[in-house]
Amino acid sequence: MKKLLAFTGQLILLLIICKLGYYLADILHLPIPGNVIGMIVLFILLQTKVLKVEWIELASGFLVKHLAFFFIPITISLMTMGWLFIEFGLGLALSLGVSLIFGFIVSAWTVQKLSHRGEVKQHDSAHHNL
């Protein structure tokens, strides 16, 4: 029960920061989405110790862990987009597929080549209990 209350409180806090992000993006005429501003605001609040990670860990951990769930309804919307694939299917499939494969390879390969392997591995095990 206490956990549920804490979870709800933390979720409301995240919602408020999100709204604040939209508000800031609006009044400052920023070309960046409000939710991204919200993320930057939360990062600054954590970095400046105004907020402690423990105060939002429960709700944020849950949301990040189950991020995929919140995408499912958007994936369902693909059922209305048959026309798009009937009309542009081959080009779209190739464009999405090939660009994905090479994007992955280049991104991962660059990081792996440029990192000092041993160093990151050590760091890795130290961070496992996050």
Binding site: L11, L14, L15, I17, C18, G21, G34, N35, V36, G38, M39, I40, V41, L42, F43, L46, Q47, V53, I56, E57, A59, S60, G61, L63, V64, L67, F69, F70, F71, I72, P73, I74, I76, S77, V120, H123, H127, L130
Partner: peptide, 27 residues
């Protein structure tokens, strides 16, 4: 309508990404 309720939480979920960003800032 159900979709809209679920996707409403993508906003705070995006904000919550600040947490892994913060926790891994050093590395």
């Amino acid at each position: 309508p159900g979709k809209n309720i679920i996707t409403y939480f993508l906003g705070p979920a995006t904000v919550a990404l600040a947490v892994p960003l913060y926790k891994n800032r050093k590395i």
